[in-house]
Design a protein around this nucleic acid. Structure first.
Lengths: 147, 147
DNA sequence: GCAATTCGGATCGAATCAGTCTGAATTGAG
DNA sequence: CTCAATTCAGACTGATTCGATCCGAATTGC
């Protein structure tokens, strides 16, 4: 139940990018220097984020990355899924993946979909814009209900 | 963002145990046969669940496991934390773990606590009793809000 | 007292993850 | 037009963690 380090780094990098002018040129070198992420890792992550459609890439001497969408449109779920793949707690929530050994009479499987959507919702409700500000907008109101 | 197979197996085993009479003797062999989990793995998991206080263990020829608490008291969060350790999305949400390389001026860290609590809440809101029934009680009402 | 059945810890192999390195592409200056 | 500098993109290596299996210790029933 832990996020990979890569995903963590990606979130930090995207938050740093969001604090810049949306149209500014952001090379992986700059982002690495600002966040402390190792440069090669930052390059790798930027490539993945670009492949997912979150960043626009521009090659060449004056190249770099630019946010493909507005800060409000991008959510934590988008960033995490770009790096780690689809948010799926178990194998059975992923479609066309029925290699679960229990499979046949698993009476728990129907429940996983509900929990999985709840977790995904927790990530989808956090926009990149809210991550760019230094402190949470309203940490005291962090409540949740799935019932 | 995926649950480990061990945690998944533990949930299936606990759900199977919950369907029995609460005071019935439940050997790892029986649970393994009912769920399809490999026997050695089931033993290892039962040991971890017992160490966490979710199961009462009884050694010997007539030994086995019994639920230590009622089905309504045990939640998904308890089971997952028993197997995988504390639910902590990133290293910085765990106390006394400040080995994050970014550390000093990480402007994203305050937000992780909010997200982490939301995810943990999604797990804590599912009781073992609701997992024992074949289908979700109300799948259509699976809504969530952290705002 | 003996044997059968069960938990508990330790060991081994595999998969994934994190990080680093080298190559291809493009732009800007000379 | 040529060259060089800067950048992204893919492939490789080492390490950590995960998952499964095996063997030993303990306890009860006969």
């Amino acid at each position: 139940m832990r996020l990979s380090s890569l995903a963590d780094y990606a979130v930090v990098m995207m938050a740093a990018a969001a604090r810049h002018c949306p149209h500014a040129r952001l090379s992986a070198t700059i982002l690495a220097a600002e966040t402390g992420v190792p440069l090669p890792t930052a390059q790798k992550l930027a490539g993945k984020l670009a492949a997912a459609g979150l960043l626009e890439t521009q090659r060449g001497a004056a190249g770099g990355f630019v946010l493909a969408k507005s800060c409000e449109t991008i959510t934590l779920a988008d960033i995490v899924e770009a790096v780690e793949g689809p948010i799926a707690l178990t194998a059975c929530v992923e479609e066309a993946k029925h290699d679960c050994a229990l499979e046949s009479a698993c009476k728990v499987r129907p429940h996983w979909g509900v929990v999985n959507e709840a977790v995904r919702g927790a990530f989808a409700n956090v926009s990149l814009a809210s991550l760019a500000v230094p402190a949470p907008v309203s940490p005291a109101r962090a409540e949740l209900s799935i019932a």
